[in-house]
């Protein structure tokens, strides 16, 4: 992915860069969604990161649990009814023991849904070449613009540097 980015030593300078790019997006004709931030660890208490701090993952996990539990209930009761073997005095559809299967399936549903939501919303796995820089892993924060408009590169570079970038690089 082609990108122009700067490397920042800390969250505050990265935030400055993000704000600066965002203010210039109309003028330099690029979409604010083209702004990327990449870090080596979760950036809490950082305004740009907070925007993503809302998601329906908990509710989707609950939904997965409900679906899993329902599957468990249907799996046990339907199969038991469809083949009514003599059970030697036990009920054909025993609630106590089936409850255990329903419980495990509920949990499995929640786990699978969480996993699926994570993979879908975090865009994993992806075959795109990830935007990254070895410097990130020693604590730098990458802020940049993907597919920067050709004619405004100079201005973007200036803004990235001005916000306090240690280095500004262009990804081919």
């Amino acid at each position: 992915m082609s990108a122009l980015y700067g490397l920042y030593p800390a969250a505050d300078s990265a935030q400055r860069a993000v704000d600066s790019l965002r203010n210039a997006s109309a003028e330099l004709r690029f979409d604010p969604r083209q702004i990327v931030v990449v870090s080596q660890e979760p950036l809490e208490h950082f305004a740009y990161a907070e925007e993503y701090a809302k998601s329906a993952m908990y509710w989707l996990a609950v939904l997965g649990g409900l679906l899993g539990g329902t599957t468990g209930y249907l799996l046990t009761s339907i199969t038991q009814k469809s083949y009514p073997l003599p059970t030697g005095g036990m009920p054909l559809v025993p609630p106590w023991t089936n409850g255990i299967i329903v419980y495990e399936m509920t949990m499995l549903g929640a786990i699978v849904f969480t996993l699926a939501t994570l993979l879908v919303t975090a865009h994993l796995p992806t075959f795109k070449k990830p935007l990254t820089d070895p410097e990130i892993w020693s604590g730098k924060i990458l802020v940049g613009v993907t597919d920067p408009p050709e004619n405004s590169r100079r201005q973007l570079e200036a803004r990235l540097t001005q916000a306090g970038a240690l280095a500004v690089k262009l990804n081919p």
Binding site: L85, P86, T87, G88, G89, M90, T97
Partner: peptide, 17 residues
Amino acid sequence: CDAAPCEPVCPTYASYH
């Protein structure tokens, strides 16, 4: 047995009434 302990524990219904 009418309430055979061997029956419910069989996972494949090999032991049944």
